[in-house]
Design a protein around this nucleic acid. Sequence first.
DNA 1: AGCCAGGGTCTGC
DNA 2: GCAGACCATGGC
Length: 284
Amino acid sequence: MEIQVSGKDIVITHLQDFCLRDILCCGQCFVFRELAPDTFFGTAGGRALTVSQSGDTLTLHNTTPTDFEGFWRGYFDLDRDYAAVKRALCCDETLRLAVAYAPGMRVLRQPPWEALCSFILSQNNNIKRIQGIVERLCETFGEALPGGGYGFPTPQTLASLTVEDLAPLRAGFRAKYILDAAQKVASGEVNLNELYTLDIDDARRSLMRIKGVGIKVADCALLYGASRVEAFPLDVWMKRAMASLFPKGLPDCAVPYAGLAQQYIFHYIRCGVKGACEVGAEGK
DNA sequence: AGCCAGGGTCTGC
DNA sequence: GCAGACCATGGC
């Protein structure tokens, strides 16, 4: 990986184990939309970004070295050795297939509040509609950013609102959960900064004090919002995948990176093999 | 038209 | 602890 500054762009060449489309479209974040093939625009951490990939070159447009080093480098998880992770996961044949299906998959390091909010909105919902709700949330209550688009509204902003205020989002029953999360985070009752260092069970329990946050949403907030790769979110897709592909449980070699393994498996069963989940499900 | 969606809460055993 | 109704909305 080599990083150069070219005008207002940051250009990364010789990038390994990185597929922008898989990373941004696999359902781990909902704030990027594709402007043109392999070119995406989105906002995170109060910054707007247009990013494109061509082969092993990734270009971050209209950003600065400060924003790159201070945010995007971490956001795209550029300093994790995915080759080593993939070698470890390939101890198991099924995991090997999942990794081979999307070898450029990565898990983003999103700001914890943004991940928490996003996955509260994800419950009993589909990815298309989640994207729409998040977009309306940012446009309605977020701050307009210099590079275009709107940032994620802060907990403080949302904490002062009512469910009626959130009606334009069409978030349904999830609106009250967003408000409870905002209030508990703004008041300090839930401290998102602790999620990085707390024992994983304590971190999960802390998040579950918020109404509408159960085990799955908490694990998503921990994995995507605090880089806790030992967290292993089990949604309806992953439950089907585990029943059919890993009836004896996740292989031991994957446990330290369960969350990363989860991302390969999730994408594999949703997009890779049509019918992979029905095979084992027929017997029950 | 009807089923399902990156679930959680509440109630009743 | 576990099952089932219910929750709002819209994509397919």
